[in-house]
């Protein structure tokens, strides 16, 4: 098939994206620069208002930092899951992947709701902690950042496991044998062979987990409660609650740019790493 006719196949979807994705985002940027409610002279006043207020800036920082923490927890637990999955027998592999995929397909509202039952003051986790005598009084997990991180890690874990698993199962297992035959122990082989070779999967997993964690509106609002404000809730409050659309548009743009910067940094890190290896 010729290049022209191949390219033509993308046109319907490109048209949809032009009208329903690119155009709205342009309008969003335009509104964020509007001086008054009816448009008018362009201004960066809304951006200045965001940056100038320490409270606003701290919300952005908290959100980006929350994503880092949730991603690291996901990586810590997700890599071993992918590792064991990749080395399991084919039959077990299907079962394991099914268990990993199950949460991401179950409605996020339902999963978060379940975590409220688990993390509550008299919830399952506190019953276990108190029963084992690990604490004298119930832990405050609901409406705390620790709770949000736990739930985000669970909700986004499949996004971390699947890309790593894909890369791990492609690695030639002779490389591990070779490393060990040359005298490297298992840990050394893990750090010097398996982790570097699976870096593309780790980077991809981190990007997906990070992007999903910081924008996880449902989890952030239901587990974090009204006191912990992150960017998505802030945008929602300004847009729907305060009806301040230009300001909400400005913070949406800031949020999107911040996400893109983090993704670009991670991508660049991944590319540098590939060259290195």
């Amino acid at each position: 098939m010729s290049t022209a006719s191949t390219t033509r196949l993308t046109l319907p979807l490109t048209a949809l994206f032009a009208v329903c994705f690119v155009a709205p985002l342009c309008v969003l940027v335009a509104l964020s620069l509007a001086a008054g409610p009816d448009g008018g002279v362009a201004t960066i006043g809304h951006y200045a208002a965001f940056v100038g207020d320490r409270f606003n800036a701290s919300i952005l920082f908290d959100t980006l930092w929350l994503g880092v923490k949730a991603t690291l927890v996901c990586l810590l637990f997700g890599f071993p899951v992918a590792w064991i999955c990749a080395r399991a027998h084919v039959r077990w592999q299907s079962v394991l992947i099914f268990l990993v995929v199950l949460p991401i397909l179950t409605s996020v509202v339902v999963r978060t709701f379940s975590w409220i039952v688990i993390l509550g003051r008299h919830g399952l986790l506190n019953q276990i902690v108190l029963g084992l005598g690990l604490a004298d009084e119930p832990l405050r997990l609901l409406y705390s950042e620790a709770g949000v991180i736990i739930v985000l890690a669970q909700v986004q874990m499949p996004l971390m496991v699947l890309p790593i698993l894909t890369v791990l199962s492609r690695i030639d297992s002779n490389l591990f044998d070779a490393s060990q035959a040359l005298g490297a122990g298992q840990w050394r082989t893990l750090w010097r062979v398996a982790v570097p070779l699976s870096m593309p999967g780790i980077i991809a997993g981190c990007i997906l987990t990070y992007a999903a964690s910081i924008t996880a509106f449902v989890t952030q609002t239901l587990i974090g409660g009204a006191r912990l404000i992150y960017m998505p809730l802030f945008i929602y409050q300004q847009a729907v609650g305060a009806n301040n659309w230009p300001f909400a548009a400005a913070i949406s743009v800031i949020f999107m740019v911040a996400v893109l910067v983090v993704v670009a940094v991670l991508n660049g890190f991944g590319r540098r790493f590939e060259k290195h290896v």
Partner: peptide, 19 residues
């Protein structure tokens, strides 16, 4: 372009759609 909705905050896109 087609993969960017996976990375961009969906809530910001939803708001852009409303505007």
């Amino acid at each position: 372009l087609f993969m960017s909705p996976l990375l961009l905050p969906a809530l910001a896109f939803g708001f852009a759609g409303l505007i």
